[in-house]
Write a protein that binds this DNA or RNA. Structure first.
Length: 563
RNA sequence: GCGCCCGUAGCUCAGUUCGGAUAGAGCGUUGGGUUGCGGACCCAAAGGCCGCAGGUUCAAGUCCUGCCGGGCGUACCA
């Protein structure tokens, strides 16, 4: 990356100046290289001198000058200036910038990727919603975030696995099973009552009706317990299949759907508790089994097995994370949880510690909840009451591309208002179309230039535009350089997204890139009678298409050839 | 009460190697722009005590403390 190259130059200059005694031998940490807001300050700027001033006991401006004087020459850099109060400003070489056009096209889909992962095995676990109801909007946010993160990490050389943890065990499941059974009875004309903590949503009744039609009345004759279990199993499988479909419509596919129940079936939960017991973190009290997290600095202990003998979600989650980190041996595990699970974070970390696993290997990313609105009115979400807006509804109304863009375009930290009316209304004004339009426009130009397209009416482009080596030195106009510079930001953005696990930079970058392209398009005619210039600009536009497609691709948004 | 997150333009939100030079975008509003490659575009204007008050330093929207407002959590729920 350019930034790293410049930092290396500065580092060399600094050492040189220090070796010559021009500067005292004080150490700096990382050398800051930033992108100035104002063009007069160059393409890049460094505030090393300001940082050094105190320790070096000198005037920042003078230090900057001494560093600048020792900068090795580089094909990247055309000019260096020192500016008060002590910045070193860099201007990139036009010749080098022009070469990047060919380089971007040569890299193709790999442009923007940065080698950070070096094959480190990372698992991204996301969505993982209860299968007791349809995926709702919050699940969509988690899905967009998780999938984008996985894509970016994959592009950065990590060996990424996407996983969905299916909570198909536990007490909630029981309530769901009973609700399904009750609705099944009702569907066949029998009187039935749902448990008080059951699921009252209409989708359960719909599901039960479908089941009744499918399996017939046979379950009426079975013992209630057996019927409940078997019908419930079918219902759960159905719910999971629907979740898979909804997520696929969003463009999200998982490498693995991991069953919580399977942990119980092979004794992993008991084994995890035994492991904690060996290490002295288990206490029996009031008929329950506790994880003594207070011994690890937690506020209080947590129940692993209730006094009624039923394990809590927490205990299977410990087993699950043991499986990820110890059994399957992922180097790094990223969990995406909704803010309603934040209370679970400290005890999970405590459990990792108790198991002698390195807590650094587990990164729990909390995303704030989605507040649903309909025309400004807040819609309360409750799966049990059945008052939910499903991801499917949103997809129907807004579409997958706009939906993903919308979810990604705000930081995970920040709470999100999702107004369905607004989302629908905005979908025609959504920035995603602005970006896609730039891509489609380029595709159209390329079709036109090829001479085979319907575009352009009676005007025909000169022949053989797309043949032969373009002479990139013909690119001289400021809008051309603005476009090249903006394209070259993609690797930096990708690196930031990977480092901070913050996908929201991507949609903003994509908009900026599209805007710069549109500006270029206005000012610079691509296909003209000037064949050499046309060839150079077509090469430029081809590179821009690559950059746009890659940015969109990392977001999981389509890059259409036509709109 | 305590913990986590948020508070930036009328609205929705950014603010990029964890402090840099005159704070940005989209939508909305107002006014302009096309005899050839896509007008789903472009240009311009208006719009800000960056929640409030202190502190840290050459430099604070960014870091620290306190307060105010909102979301979430604080279960033998998940």
């Amino acid at each position: 990356m350019i930034r790293d190259d410049l930092a290396a130059l500065l580092h060399a200059a600094l050492e040189d100046a220090q070796a010559r005694g021009d500067l005292p031998a004080v150490s700096v940490g990382e050398i800051p290289v930033e992108r100035p807001q104002r063009p007069e300050h160059g393409d890049y700027a460094s505030s090393v001198a300001l940082k050094l001033a105190r320790a070096a006991r000198g005037r920042p401006l003078e230090i900057a000058a001494r560093i600048a004087a020792r900068l090795p020459s580089s094909p990247l850099v055309e000019r260096v200036e020192v500016a008060p109060p002590g910045f070193v400003n860099f201007w990139l070489s036009p010749a080098w910038l022009r070469e990047q056009v060919a380089e971007i096209t040569r890299l193709g889909p790999r442009f923007g990727a940065v080698d950070l992962g070096r094959g480190v095995r990372v698992q991204v676990e996301f969505v993982s919603a209860n299968p007791t109801g349809p995926i709702h909007v919050g699940g969509g946010r988690g899905a967009a975030l998780g999938d984008c993160l996985a894509a970016v990490l994959g592009a950065c050389g990590y060996d990424v696995q996407r996983e969905y943890y299916v909570n198909d065990a536990g007490s909630r499941m029981e309530a769901f099973y009973q609700s399904v059974y009750a609705r099944y009875l009702e569907a066949l004309g029998r009187a039935a009552t749902l448990p008080p903590d059951g699921y009252y949503g209409g989708y359960v009744a719909d599901l039960a009706r479908e089941l009744a039609a499918e399996v017939g009345p046979g379950y009426l004759d079975l013992p209630a317990e057996q019927a409940t279990r078997e019908l419930g199993d079918r219902a759960i499988r159905q719910m999971i299949a629907e979740a898979r479909e909804d997520l696929a419509r969003l463009g999200v596919r998982f490498d693995r759907w991991y069953s919580e129940q399977s942990l119980y079936e092979r004794g992993a939960v008991q084994a995890a508790i035994a492991r904690l017991r060996e290490r002295g973190y288990i206490a029996e009290r009031e008929g329950a089994t506790w994880f003594v997290s207070s011994a690890l600095g937690e506020d209080k202990d947590n129940v692993l097995i209730r006094s009624n003998g039923v394990p809590t979600y927490f205990s299977s989650d410990i087993a699950y994370h043991w499986d990820k980190l110890a059994e399957r041996g992922f180097d790094w595990v990223i969990d995406l949880w909704g803010a309603d699970h934040q209370g679970h974070v400290p005890r999970m970390k405590a459990a990792i510690n108790a198991l002698d696993l390195d807590p650094q290997r587990l990164h729990i990313l909390i995303y704030q909840l989605v507040t649903l609105k309909r025309g400004g009115e807040v819609v309360r979400v409750s799966k049990r009451a059945g008052d939910i807006i499903t991801l499917r509804e949103v997809l129907d109304e807004v579409g997958a591309d706009a939906c993903r863009f919308f979810f990604l375009a705000r930081a995970a930290d920040s709470p999100m208002d999702f107004d369905l009316e607004l989302a629908k209304q905005q979908s025609s004004e959504n920035p995603v179309y602005y970006v896609q339009y730039a891509h489609a426009r380029i595709a159209s130009i390329l079709r036109y230039a090829s001479g085979e397209a319907e575009e352009g009416g009676e005007h025909r482009p000169p022949a053989d535009l797309l043949r032969g080596e373009p002479d990139l030195s013909l690119l001289t106009a400021p809008p051309e350089f603005a476009l090249i510079r903006k394209m070259l930001e993609l690797p930096e953005i990708v690196a930031v997204v990977a480092r901070d696990l913050a996908p929201h930079h991507l949609p903003y970058y994509a908009q900026e890139l599209a805007a710069v392209f549109h500006g270029f398009y206005r000012d610079c005619r691509v296909v003209s009678d000037d064949v050499p210039l046309s060839r150079a600009r077509l090469a430029l536009v081809q590179a821009a298409k690559t950059a746009l497609a890659n940015a969109l691709g990392l977001m999981g948004v389509s890059a259409p050839e036509r709109m």
